[in-house]
Amino acid sequence: MDRLEVTPAHALPEIRPMLATPAPLPAEDDEASWGFEVKWDGVRCVAYAPGDGTLRLVTRAGNDATATYPELRGLGERLPGRPVVLDGEVVVVDERGRPDFGLLQRRMGVANPRRAAHLAMEYPVHLMLFDVMYLDGALLTELPYRERRALLYGLGVGGPNWSVPAHVEGHGLQAWDATLRGGFEGVLAKRLTSRYLPGVRSPDWRKTKHVITLDVVIGGWAEGRGHLAGLPGAVLAGLRDPSGLRYVGSVGSGLSEHERQDLARYLSVIPRADSPFAGPVDVSGAHWVEPRLVAEIAFTGWTAADRLRHPTWHRLRPDLTQLG
Rank of each mutant, 00 (worst) to 15 (best):
L267D: 00
D319M: 02
S194H: 09
S202L: 08
E257R: 15
R148M: 06
T7D: 04
E296R: 14
R315F: 05
V251T: 08
V283W: 05
F299A: 00
N161Y: 15
L245D: 12
E257I: 15
P232T: 01
F299I: 04
S33M: 09
S202D: 08
L263G: 00
F36D: 12
E31S: 14
D52K: 12
D215M: 08
R240E: 11
G220S: 02
D87T: 13
I270C: 11
A229L: 12
H310E: 09
K39W: 05
D282Y: 07
P280D: 10
Y153S: 09
V187G: 05
T59I: 13
R114G: 03
L155H: 08
G230R: 07
P203I: 01
F36H: 13
H314D: 08
V187Q: 09
V43W: 09
G220I: 01
W205C: 07
F184T: 05
L316Q: 06
N63D: 13
A166R: 15
P165S: 05
R265M: 04
A295E: 00
G186H: 03
L19S: 10
V248N: 06
T68P: 01
L86Y: 06
V187M: 13
W288H: 06
R3Y: 02
R206C: 02
F299R: 00
D306T: 11
V217P: 05
P280R: 14
V91C: 14
R181N: 05
P160K: 13
G182E: 07
S256R: 12
G158V: 11
P17H: 11
V157T: 11
A286F: 03
T208H: 12
M108C: 06
L103W: 03
V110S: 08
L293Q: 00
G252A: 07
R292C: 08
W205T: 01
C45I: 14
A305K: 14
D319Q: 10
E296P: 13
T179Q: 12
Q322D: 08
R98L: 04
R315A: 06
R78H: 08
W302N: 02
I297A: 01
G109V: 03
P318Y: 05
K39A: 09
V283H: 09
E169F: 11
V84R: 01
R195L: 07
G220F: 01
W176E: 09
P8A: 08
E290R: 15
R309E: 06
G109R: 15
G254D: 04
W162T: 11
R56N: 03
P198G: 07
T59Y: 01
A286E: 07
P26A: 10
R240D: 06
E296C: 09
I15Y: 01
L214K: 12
T179P: 08
